[in-house]
């Protein structure tokens, strides 16, 4: 059984590894650029957590527990870091490789399929996002913002966020026509960052706005990471994970379909 499973695993994932290794070779000279993305979220943590957090002090969760505002905001900023790392990689960088540098035109003349390209880009985005997340979690730990040993689970939780936004980013990369389209994306991302439950519990929004927030992918990411890092586990987390996985699958599938349509012409 294991031989067959291994063989299947190889045939499905082998080619996408080649795409991953292409990105590694292309970016290894620019690792400072890669690391700089992680520094950005640390700046957010300092500004909002320690700056604003010092003014707000402690807050009371809907469940009645009281925690410092910094501990409340930090997981959300972590979720945001996971989102930005993978979304920017898959949207802007894939768009550049697809429309600008025509990298995929060359790749498709080989045995590689659009599915292999899409999957390879997802792996790469996850690795890049993972670097940001790891940097951030280490910083959280250093400032005493991790409430229990289970908080380490925030890292794999952030991977689900990365998966979801890789899928979304890939689809956007194939839908967007030109750079100004990315301004729209950034506007929506910023709205999610502000209103997706980063700074205040969703329950404090007026009733009509709440369904909008529940639809935001980032909201589900924040809920997941926050629940884990504060040690508040609940059945809703399964819904968060499923929602994020559904986005990942749908996004990657749509993206490879659109790549095929655009490049196999």
């Amino acid at each position: 059984m294991s031989v067959i499973a291994y063989g299947l695993f190889r045939t499905r994932l082998g080619p996408s590894r080649a795409m991953l290794s292409r990105n590694w070779v292309a970016m290894r000279r620019a690792w400072v650029l890669v690391a700089s993305g992680g520094v950005e979220s640390l700046l957010f943590l300092f500004a909002f957590g320690f700056g604003v957090g010092a003014l707000v002090g402690d807050i009371t969760l809907p469940g009645g527990r009281t925690i410092s505002y910094t501990a409340y905001v930090a997981p959300a900023i972590l979720a945001n870091a996971a989102m930005m790392g993978t979304l920017l990689e898959t949207s802007i960088n894939v768009f550049a490789k697809f429309k600008w540098m025509k990298v995929y035109d060359g790749v498709l003349a080989t045995p590689m399929r659009p599915w292999d390209i899409a999957l390879g880009e997802v792996w790469w985005a996850l690795i890049r996002g993972g670097v940001y997340v790891a940097m951030f979690v280490i910083a959280m730990g250093a400032f005493g913002l991790l409430e229990s040993v289970w908080s380490v689970l925030a890292v794999p939780a952030a991977v689900f966020i990365g998966l979801a936004f890789s899928g979304i980013g890939l689809t956007l990369a194939t839908v967007f026509r030109n750079w100004p389209d990315f301004d729209w994306m950034m506007a929506i991302v910023f709205a999610m960052f502000l209103f997706g439950g980063t700074f205040t519990p969703v329950e404090s929004y007026p009733g009509f706005a709440q369904p909008l927030v529940y639809a935001m992918p980032l909201y589900h990411g924040i809920e997941l990471v926050r629940g884990i890092s504060l040690g508040e586990l609940g059945p809703m987390m399964a819904v968060n994970v499923l929602y994020l996985c559904a986005l990942a699958l749908a996004g990657t599938w749509i993206a490879q379909r659109r790549l095929a349509k655009a490049l196999y012409k």
Binding site: A18, S21, M101, K102, G106, A109, T110, P111
Partner: peptide, 27 residues
């Protein structure tokens, strides 16, 4: 072995890497 009209070389890579990375696509 395909040489398309517009080359489609990978301009983020060096000359040597263009060959080795491309070899990777063939496994």
């Amino acid at each position: 072995g395909v040489v398309p009209q517009d080359n489609t070389l990978d301009n983020m890579l060096t000359v040597f890497e263009n060959l080795t990375v491309y070899a990777g696509y063939f496994g």
